[in-house]
Simulated assay, not measured.
Amino acid sequence: MATPTYNDLTTQLRLRWVDVEDVRATQHAVIEVTPDAAYLELPRGRKGDKGDKGDPAPPLLWRSLVTDRSQLPRDLQDVDAGAAFADTGSKSLWVWDGSQYFEVPDFIGLRGEPGVTPRVQIGSVTPGGAASVSVNQAASTEDMFVLDFVLPQGPRGAPGDKGDPGTASNVSASPDVDVSRPPVPGEALTWNGLKWAPRTVLSPVGPFTLGPTDFTSVDQGLIGSGDVTERLVASLTIPPQPFDWRPVVLSGLVKIQTPFGVQFNAEVRVGNAQQGDVVGYGVGKVNNKWDEPILIRPHFPQAVTPGSNYAVVKANTATTIYVTLKKHMGTIGAWKTDREWCSLTVMAQPTIAGV
């Protein structure tokens, strides 16, 4: 195919113009060049001067809803510029510009599907501090919100009126209480695994104590000291208890002074000063000084369990607790005791045998 010459272009160049005033609206200003292989170079025009500032657009003035464009008013004037009507049928907005209506499509959104009505549940309620509420995200679900509250302490209200007396209850008639055997003094209702039934309360009773004036002062001289191997220094009588029990020594103290080579220990027995069961013991020192008293602590020389018979005092029986100093080391030598600081504290511990 031969390339067109300039002469071909000049004879086949056709210019087709449209109305100049309508160029902006139609966007048509066509220059046609034939044949197809030809082209025409035109000089670029210079940028024109900035135009004058336009008039402000009329304000948008909401009027009403319509269901079709045919319902738009036809009697509007230029003073009504900006009047707006929402079309619920086409979802467009129609705006009067002073001479005609122009359309804003999709002005009205479509109605969505109804959402799920959420349920609200009360979570934690914490007293104190400033009042606040928060969503517990961990406990909440898509259709349920769990709200945690912090509520301040309110002021104390006025005392209310005294209520009417209630109906007296009968514990023995309760289905979980067994009083087929009536309780005796010292018993209380305790749970036996099936029902509440009378049983000895296994909490200690007391204390029973001795003070300094209840102790005997001893002044053993050198003469005859070899013949003295023990000396009773105090006794404590405990009245009868309505249950079987065992003495439990909490603490005690005996002030003693011994010479070189001589040691005394303190022994606490129940029922008999020589043959009774030992329930407390204190270890002294050789050459014991006044400021080194013997400390008495609970002591059982054999294994003891709640059901053991060792040192048990029977119910409704009085007994006596004895404090005796026994020579542990040495033969002769002067020694003495003093009442100052001396004491003994005993509790009566109910035993399983008393149940």
Rank of each mutant, 00 (worst) to 15 (best):
D143M: 03
A130G: 12
I122L: 10
V133Y: 05
D148E: 08
K162N: 10
G128R: 05
R119L: 10
K162W: 04
T126F: 01
L147G: 02
Q137M: 08
Q121T: 15
G123Q: 05
P155Y: 04
R156H: 08
I122Y: 00
V150H: 09
V146P: 10
Q137W: 03
P159D: 07
F145V: 11
G129T: 11
I122A: 09
N136W: 07
S124K: 14
A139F: 01
Q153G: 07
K162H: 06
G154A: 12
G129Q: 10
V135L: 14
P159Y: 00
A158V: 10
Q153S: 06
F145K: 13
S132K: 12
P152Q: 06
P118F: 04
F149V: 03
T117W: 00
G129V: 05
G157M: 01
G115R: 12
V120W: 10
D143Y: 07
A138Y: 01
G115W: 02
L151R: 09
S132P: 05
T126D: 09
S132E: 15
F149I: 03
P118E: 07
F149Q: 02
A131T: 11
G123N: 10
A138R: 11
I122F: 02
K162D: 12
V133L: 06
L147E: 11
S124H: 05
V120T: 14
S124M: 06
S132I: 06
P114K: 07
P114R: 05
D148A: 03
L147A: 13
G163W: 00
V116A: 13
N136R: 13
V116N: 13
R119D: 10
F145S: 11
Q153E: 13
G157W: 00
V146R: 13
G129N: 11
P114E: 10
P155C: 01
Q137R: 12
F145I: 12
T117S: 07
T126K: 14
V133I: 07
S124G: 12
G115N: 08
N136G: 11
L147I: 13
E142Q: 13
G160K: 04
D148C: 09
S140Q: 07
L151P: 03
S124N: 09
P114Q: 11
S124F: 02
G129W: 12
Q121Y: 04
P159N: 10
A131W: 01
V135C: 04
G115I: 05
P152F: 10
P159Q: 08
V133W: 00
G157P: 04
L151G: 03
Q153Y: 08
S124Y: 00
E142S: 15
P127T: 14
L151I: 15
D161R: 12
D161M: 00
S140E: 03
G154I: 06
P159C: 01
F149R: 09
S132W: 00
G163N: 04
F149C: 01
S132D: 14
L151A: 08
P118C: 08
G123P: 07
D148V: 05
R156A: 14
V120P: 02
T117N: 11
T117L: 07
Q153F: 08
A130M: 10
P118K: 12
P159I: 00
G163K: 06
R156T: 15
V146H: 08
L151E: 08
T126L: 06
